[in-house]
C-alpha cells in the first residue's frame, strides 16, 4: 500500500503523510467496510482518496490551455527492461502534483478523463492536457535516464 502512496506523492515524506492519514481513516471507518469485497481494494481506495485530498488544492488553480505537447524523442525500444523501478518512482514523483495525479489516475488506475474531471473538479480538457504534459515530461526523463545509462555502461 505504501507503493500507491509513493507514486501519488511528491516525495517519501509526503507518501508517509498520505499513508498515515489514509490508515487513520481506515481505522476510523473500518466499521463501514462491509466485508463484501476485497479489503485490500477498499484500503487502496482510501489511500488514493487521501492523496487526492492532499493535492486537491493544486487543481484549483486555473490551467492555461496548453497545446498538446509532442515528444521530442521516441521512447527507446528496450528501455523498459533496464530502468529501475526506483528510478521510475523518482521520475513520477518529480512531476508536479497536477500532472502526477492525473497520470496515476489515468495510466495506472484506469480512470477515464470524464471520471478524472469529476474526481478532481476540473474539465476534461484540463485532464487531457495534464496527462499529455505528464507523458511528455515522463518520456523526456526516461529517455534522459536511458541515454545516461548507455553512456555510463
Amino acid at each position: 500500500m505504501f507503493g500507491v502512496c509513493l507514486r501519488y506523492a511528491g516525495n517519501y515524506h509526503d507518501a508517509e503523510d498520505i499513508m498515515q492519514e489514509g490508515f487513520i481513516k481506515v481505522f476510523e471507518k473500518i466499521h463501514q467496510f462491509g466485508f463484501k469485497g476485497a479489503f485490500e481494494g477498499w484500503i487502496r481506495k482510501v489511500m488514493v482518496n487521501t492523496a487526492l485530498e492532499k493535492y486537491r488544492m493544486h487543481f484549483q488553480t486555473v490551467t492555461i490551455y496548453e497545446n498538446l505537447p509532442e515528444a521530442d524523442h521516441e521512447l527507446e525500444k528496450d528501455i523498459t527492461g533496464n530502468i529501475e523501478v526506483s528510478e521510475l518512482m523518482n521520475i513520477i514523483q518529480e512531476l508536479s502534483p497536477k500532472y502526477r495525479v492525473v497520470f496515476n489516475l489515468y495510466a495506472l488506475e484506469g480512470y477515464s478523463h470524464k471520471e478524472i474531471s469529476a474526481m478532481l473538479n476540473i474539465t476534461e480538457g484540463t485532464s487531457k492536457s495534464n496527462l499529455s504534459r505528464a507523458r511528455v515530461i515522463l518520456q523526456e526523463k526516461v529517455n534522459k535516464y536511458y541515454s545516461k545509462s548507455i553512456q555510463t555502461s
Binding site: F2, G3, L88, F103, A107, R135, L138, Q139
Partner: peptide, 15 residues
C-alpha cells in the same frame, strides 16, 4: 508505451 512502462513497473510496486 510510456503508460505501460509505468503501469507495469509501478502499479504493482510495493515497498
Amino acid at each position: 508505451r510510456i503508460d505501460r512502462l509505468f503501469r507495469e513497473r509501478l502499479a504493482g510496486f510495493e515497498e
